[in-house]
Design a protein around this nucleic acid. Sequence first.
DNA 1: ATCATTTCTTAACCTACATCATCTTTCCCG
DNA 2: CGGGAAAGATGATGTAGGTTAAGAAATGAT
Lengths: 190, 190
Amino acid sequence: MPFNLLLNNVSRYIHLTDAEKEIFISLLQEKQLKRKQFFLNDGEICKYSAFVTSGCLRGFTVDKNGIEHVLSFAPPDWWMADMYSLISKKPGTLNIEALEDTDIILLSKTNQEKLYLEIPKFERFFRILIENSLVANQQRIVDNLSLTAEERYNIFCKRYPTLINHLPQKQIASYIGVTPEFFSRMRNKH
Amino acid sequence: MPFNLLLNNVSRYIHLTDAEKEIFISLLQEKQLKRKQFFLNDGEICKYSAFVTSGCLRGFTVDKNGIEHVLSFAPPDWWMADMYSLISKKPGTLNIEALEDTDIILLSKTNQEKLYLEIPKFERFFRILIENSLVANQQRIVDNLSLTAEERYNIFCKRYPTLINHLPQKQIASYIGVTPEFFSRMRNKH
DNA sequence: ATCATTTCTTAACCTACATCATCTTTCCCG
DNA sequence: CGGGAAAGATGATGTAGGTTAAGAAATGAT
């Protein structure tokens, strides 16, 4: 059944009884996205966290010159949301788009709060999830401050080997923080 | 008493009974740092979260060329730790130094885990704390990807007005991601 | 299969910011 | 309050990466 990947993801950090699994699943919704379909547009309030079961999402902002900047990718087994908008309940700046046909499981903010009340263990689960995310983001800040584009690219390759293959170069370039032109030059030089 | 600032910080997100406050306080330690004294050196395992009650800390990494990069500042009412090292229990890369004489309250990782067991509400407290931190870090990544040094400086001034005054320029430059020389030029041109 | 769209490549030129060096100012500790 | 160290200012020059433009290759919807 389609919730297995998610239940497995959860069970890495907390143990759920069958009854608790039932409750959890009852608070979820499934959704399919077509390639290039948006899950969230900037200016909207983000009301759901998305867990990817197949395909891939990307989260990006658009700056005042119309240039896109990729904040994160979400391949299967990853969560994605506009964290700022989700917790503040204010319009956010993130766009979330499917890079290919993608299946996701949705947990609404409302249901997430229900979940915290009904199964407090989930406070722990999401705390740990967010801790890991924070560590990764802090490392990325340090990398952006201290490394060249080439070094950041090498790190990206090591950290997301599965993504490298089926991700357009320009998306990686944007994540790394360089233009597609420079990225192309960088890879083909030597 | 010296724990008031911290109890107030906690009470912004969860309510504690007097008994719970007692337990919490019993798990804390106070510590004073002299100006330039290190609270943590890279290569060490970070075993404590620090809550600043007076003074100011800075967290920074040193790159392979010996250049320092400021990841964060902690004025009073802020928490500081090497999150990576703290949760992985492995040696980290962060240095934490007092920028002036600084008073902190320590919560050891061990006691933090005790706290989660004895007063599960603290799972919620730290989850929310980390959520906010994650949002701020994601915004910083986006800013680094999409803004000029000058724009990042303006944002810094707005976001940390109290810090601007009594922080050496070179520390702000490092946080922004430019050299002290360029930062000086940037501020003095007009 | 085919055409349109998107993605990638390459080249010439440009700019934000770095580096190095020197000088002045501030500040902290005895 | 005085001297030494750290912080800041400023000029000359260097470079990683951006911009613009134009063609080649890959990809996806029909």
